[in-house]
């Protein structure tokens, strides 16, 4: 039973690894094909927006995959191919947002918030420690008054 489950899960995960790229699209040069796959994985499908064109079965995604391959065959660099598609569809097609002035908040935001959190924790702990330190050490004058109070209590 357990083995059967394992087999089923393995088959299912194998199935998921098969991409939308059709055999007829694949380039004969494996190095170019690898570059094409890498670029396709970074480009958003405009029809089903949370998939890359490498994953998507949409017709437009297929045509974009073919366009990527065609341009690579013509000798363009990865950056040239990507920048052409960005020039047509905007930076929205890049699944990984680029690092520029309009995305500074996106990239710097999380580390800034982590830094604020660390600072807050640090400040709170220091304050706690200084408070407990004050409670532990009584001055000589305070010790005398405490003793007097306690003595007073026990005698009466």
């Amino acid at each position: 039973m357990r083995n059967l489950l394992l087999i089923v899960l393995t088959l299912v995960s194998l199935n998921a690894a098969v991409m939308a790229v059709e055999p007829s699209e694949v380039l004969s040069d494996p190095a170019l094909e690898a570059r094409a796959r890498h670029i396709s994985a970074e480009l958003r499908c405009l029809v089903c927006q949370n998939q890359s064109i490498d994953d998507s079965d949409a017709q437009l995604a297929k045509d974009l995959r073919l366009l990527v391959r065609e341009r690579l065959v013509q000798g363009e660099t990865d950056e040239q191919v990507k920048s052409y598609i960005v020039s047509r569809y905007g930076e929205f097609v890049l699944l990984k947002p680029p690092f520029n002035s309009s995305t500074y908040v996106l990239w710097y935001g999380p580390p800034v918030f982590v830094a604020i959190g660390i600072m807050a924790v640090f400040v709170i702990f220091r304050r706690k420690r200084s408070l407990s330190g004050a409670a532990a050490g009584l001055s000589a004058d305070e010790q005398r008054r405490l003793k007097a109070l306690l003595d007073d209590e026990t005698t009466s």
Partner: peptide
């Protein structure tokens, strides 16, 4: 048939 014109205009649908 192969979206050449559509891509030139940035068409999505």
């Amino acid at each position: 048939p192969d979206s050449k014109g559509a891509i030139a205009f940035g068409v999505t649908g």
